[in-house]
Amino acid sequence: MRKFTSNLTVLTAKSGKYITGTAIDGNTAIHFTVANNDLNAATFIPEANLVVTGDLKLGDVGTVNVWITSTVALISLPELAVEPISAPVVTPAPIEVVAPVLTSTQKRAATIAAKKAAATAELVPF
């Protein structure tokens, strides 16, 4: 294999285990393969213009097969159509008041506390 550095214009790209596709450098057709990661998935898209390095071998007449090892420069990316994102409509759920469920020990303690409060209130002079 031979090393190369090239200014590619990506024509097609297909994502799988690796990103594969076709590109052109001047008038030479190139079949490329590159690792599939987040950065490469965002940059190896049709109409992207990149400066890359890697290994090459000659393919059919007028074509070169390359394994791209690194992207040296990002010259340009195509203008992507951006659709506006609308905020989701959120309707609040109705509030449901639920009375607490007391155990028998808690009920007994509440009764004792209420009786003590009532007895204390009767002892307060006017």
Rank of each mutant, 00 (worst) to 15 (best):
M1V: 05
R2I: 05
R2N: 15
K3C: 14
F4K: 12
S6Y: 02
N7H: 04
L8P: 13
T9E: 14
T9Q: 10
V10S: 05
L11N: 14
L11G: 12
T12P: 10
T12V: 15
A13D: 12
K14A: 15
K14L: 15
G16H: 12
T20K: 04
G21I: 02
T22Y: 04
T22L: 07
I24G: 14
D25R: 06
D25W: 02
G26N: 08
N27G: 09
T28I: 14
I30E: 00
I30P: 01
F32K: 04
F32M: 11
V34I: 14
N37W: 11
N37D: 14
D38W: 00
L39W: 00
L39K: 05
L39C: 01
N40T: 15
N40G: 15
A42M: 13
I45E: 00
E47I: 00
A48H: 02
N49S: 11
N49I: 15
T53V: 06
D55P: 03
L56V: 01
K57H: 13
K57P: 06
K57V: 12
L58V: 13
V61R: 04
V61T: 11
V61I: 13
V61P: 04
T63R: 15
V64N: 09
N65I: 10
N65E: 03
N65P: 00
V66K: 03
V66M: 07
I68K: 01
T69N: 14
T69K: 12
T71H: 06
V72T: 04
A73F: 06
L74G: 00
I75F: 07
I75C: 09
I75Y: 07
S76G: 09
P78T: 02
L80Q: 03
A81T: 10
A81S: 08
V82A: 03
E83Y: 01
P84H: 12
S86P: 06
A87K: 02
V90M: 12
V90C: 03
T91C: 01
P92D: 12
P92C: 11
P92S: 15
P92G: 15
A93S: 14
I95R: 08
I95W: 03
I95Y: 05
E96D: 11
V97Q: 08
V98Y: 13
P100G: 07
P100T: 15
V101N: 10
V101R: 13
Q106L: 01
Q106C: 00
Q106T: 04
K107G: 00
K107N: 04
R108G: 04
A110P: 02
I112G: 11
I112V: 15
A113G: 06
A114V: 02
K116A: 05
A118C: 06
A118Y: 06
A118S: 05
A118E: 10
E122V: 13
E122A: 14
L123D: 09
L123V: 13
L123Q: 09
V124N: 05
V124Y: 06
P125E: 10
F126R: 05
